[in-house]
Computed example of a mutant assay.
Amino acid sequence: MSRRPSALLRTVSGGAAVLTALASATGCGSESGTSGTSSPSGEVTAAFVACHGSGQLLGAGSTAQANAMDVWKAAFSSGCPSITVTYGGGGSGAGIQQFNQGKVAFAGSDAALKQSEIDASKQVCTGGQGIDLPMVGGLISVVYNIDGVDHLVLNGQTIAKIFNSEITKWNDPAITALNPGVALPDADIQSVHRSDDSGTTANLTGYLAVASNGTWPYPASKTWAGKGGQSANGSAGVAAQVKQVKNSIGYVELSFAQTNGLKSAAIATGASKPVDATAANAATTIAKAQPAGTGNDLALNLNYATQDEGAYPLVLVTYEIVCDKGNKAATLDALKSFLAYTSSDSAQQAIGSQGYVPLPSAITSQVKNVIPTLS
């Protein structure tokens, strides 16, 4: 197998990327010890990451991380031209299915593997199983399109009732009570949910299950169970639908809210004031995530019921799902090199400008320790 070491440098300034391939670095799938830094002009410069392997590296799954993947693929291909990374969306459920069928080297999922999915992965991970590596931090924006309403506050109960067709008017007393002085229209609410099995849906319904005081009657699930509403495929589909339809509401990863110019509701959590949907507020919640996996599986428990000041509760962590053992030899080096880049400080900073939440170093350091052990 070809082993042409190279390195990559990524610069992000004002949302524009300048990609430059640099000199060689040593150590497969590891950083040279130089972390990303910020220049006086605000540019973020990537760390040097070794590049090994060649050919095509296939991934699929979460659409919430699709915009992050676009940033990463461009940077990585510039530094590692011998490797072509292809990532297809389709949702977390479809990505896990393709992974467990041996069609992709890694899957993106906004929800950790269930035991049944781990069991199925053993058919393709010879001598091992699928594991969860947290890679993309984010938040779920409850996006809305109401003329004249620039700031909207909702809570777990109102969100649950809206998406289950129990609150059907924007001027419903439950909503107006949360928004004193806001002129909410006497208009029908058009809710939009995901049509595909989605980790974003799993995180939203996980939040509703604990934050709606029993109003949401369904368990957390990748498959939508709420009554009524319209459906759309992927985060891009939901964002496009909300953007086009007046008096609509949906849920997407913050990156899609930003790229589509959509407004995001603040969430009343029980803290002293409602919490805005910002990366900084989401980072407060993600930083307190607790381990849920064992061994090299780094699944996390997120506290959707947080009432901490400035802690946005509707957060998600997207995992890259890989085999701990039994990865295909033809793509193993490329996979480890790509994951080493995406978990680097600089790669995490690069997606911060795209509406994502750079993962805390306490999490990425664990990921970096696991990557060299993949076999």
Rank of each mutant, 00 (worst) to 15 (best):
W224R: 10
A174M: 11
G206I: 03
A225K: 15
G228R: 06
P219K: 11
L208C: 05
A177M: 02
L184H: 00
S195C: 01
D188M: 11
N179W: 02
A177S: 14
R194T: 08
A174L: 13
A177K: 14
K222V: 13
A202F: 15
V192L: 08
D186A: 12
T200N: 03
A177D: 10
N203T: 12
A211H: 05
P219L: 09
K227W: 02
W216P: 06
T200D: 09
Y218K: 00
I189S: 01
K222A: 14
A211L: 04
N213L: 10
H193M: 12
D197L: 11
T205D: 07
I189V: 12
A174R: 13
S195G: 13
N233M: 11
I189A: 07
P185H: 01
P180T: 07
D196S: 06
A174F: 04
N179E: 01
G228A: 01
D188K: 15
I175D: 03
S191V: 04
L178F: 11
L204H: 01
N203P: 07
D188H: 13
K222T: 15
D196T: 12
G181K: 03
G199P: 08
G229C: 01
G206Q: 08
D188R: 14
D188N: 14
G229L: 04
A225T: 10
A211N: 07
G206N: 03
G226H: 06
D197R: 12
